[in-house]
Design a protein around this nucleic acid. Structure first.
Lengths: 230, 230
DNA sequence: ACACATTCGAGAGCACTGCTCTTGCTCTGG
DNA sequence: CCAGAGCAAGAGCAGTGCTCTCGAATGTGT
């Protein structure tokens, strides 16, 4: 038997699991991760709290499921933005994806905080989150790779001696067809972009930057320039 | 009477308040903000939990005190690094301060998460945190200003039309003697730098960047270049 | 078709949390 | 000197994550 429709029992389990995640996501969006309460979820679902443990062995496991969903939701938004600009120039694809991340973060602040903010107490993300977490990063790599193969990618600045070895390792792991210096610039750009998003979302720009969208767009383009996109 | 040494009562209050903050800071450093417990603090201090409310009306007020201390600690580290390199070139001062922020963050991960990570649930930073929070930013502004007045600051790239007005506002507020385009680049650089720190600290670089110090140094220098420091 | 096994919901309970309120004791300013 | 302010302590409330036990419903193998 495959995984679908194997008995009413399994189906019911799927449905209850989904219902729990849905309600948990709703509470997460409204109250934030720290105020997400298993008991409250169970309550609004009309079940007793102990029953919920049949589906998620602990609060952290529920959070992990929500984290994966959040990464996937963000990744889907970014990929949709990338596809929507079709075969535009790499720089435009980059900014479109960056915009999509920005918009998604503003629309899902608590989800964003859950995945890119400070990790919740004593919680260390399990391996299962890695694939979902990588989607946006892989998109940026793909865009830069396309630019490189089209011959429109400027060279990244030379690496200092103490970075050459590590850069080689990074390039081998992430994008063997790209120059190591470009890979280094790309990873830095990735972190810098999310730094901008996080600062805006977490209030660091309050009373500093008022009109955020043009500021972000400009910064995202400048960051793309730093990777070699023109 | 001034604020110092006005009666044994006030002094005792100061001491107890300091003891509470110290113990709270210790628990924060070990367990993280979300696991900071008023009752646990009171317990190890040998008092009953309700007594603690005479000194901090709520858990959030204690957290606010710790936030201010954390900002001040980080600011002091950054300023010390700036002074230690004396009247070196602005670029070196920039990287020295960036390094200091980086090191402080690695040494105080939970404090860093408290101030630059996702804000704790339903908590909005009160105005009283603003001065302490501004110290590092003001340092970066001062460094760039010095470079500008020494005539060694490269021009920042031209601003798009939809950013000119906002850039003028930002410059007027933060550094009227600097070109608006430079101020925009500076604010972005500030956020980007903390983006790098946050990504490293919150595990986003796991399995991506292994040898972090050279990577960070390189990225910090590249960010400084983006502001016009050479 | 029946017996066995597994799964599940419900309830009680434990140890913990932030916070409030009342009761007295102690210290201090006028 | 002594009234009032400051303070510690205790009990208590409502909430949390999580565990354990106990029937009942639901599958599965013979």
């Amino acid at each position: 038997m495959s995984s679908t429709a194997q008995g009413a029992r399994a189906r019911a389990r799927m449905e209850v699991t989904a219902a729990i995640k849905d309600e948990a996501r709703r509470q997460l969006a409204q109250e934030g991760a720290a105020r997400l309460s298993l008991r409250a979820v169970a309550r609004t679902l009309g079940m007793v709290s102990s029953a919920l443990y049949r589906y998620f062995p602990s609060r952290d496991d529920l959070l992990t499921a929500l984290i994966i969903d959040a990464y996937d939701s963000l990744g889907a938004s970014a990929e949709a933005a990338n596809e929507q600009v079709g075969d535009a120039a790499p720089l435009e694809r980059w900014t479109a994806v960056a915009e999509a991340v920005h918009v998604w973060a503003l629309e899902h602040p608590h989800e964003y905080a859950l995945i890119y903010g400070s990790p919740v107490p004593g919680y260390t993300a399990p391996m299962t989150t890695v694939p979902a977490a990588s989607r946006v990063g892989l998109l940026f790599i793909a865009i830069v790779r396309d630019a490189h193969h089209e011959g429109v990618l400027a060279d990244a600045p030379e690496l200092p001696d103490d970075l050459v070895a590590e850069a080689g390792r990074m390039a081998a792991d992430l994008a063997p067809d790209l120059p190591p210096a470009t890979v280094v610039a790309l990873i830095a750009a990735w972190a810098e972009l999310f730094g901008l998003v996080g600062f805006e979302l977490f209030g660091q720009f309050n009373r500093v930057v008022e009109d955020r969208p043009p500021f972000f767009r400009h910064a995202a383009i400048r960051i793309a320039h730093g990777v070699g996109l023109r």
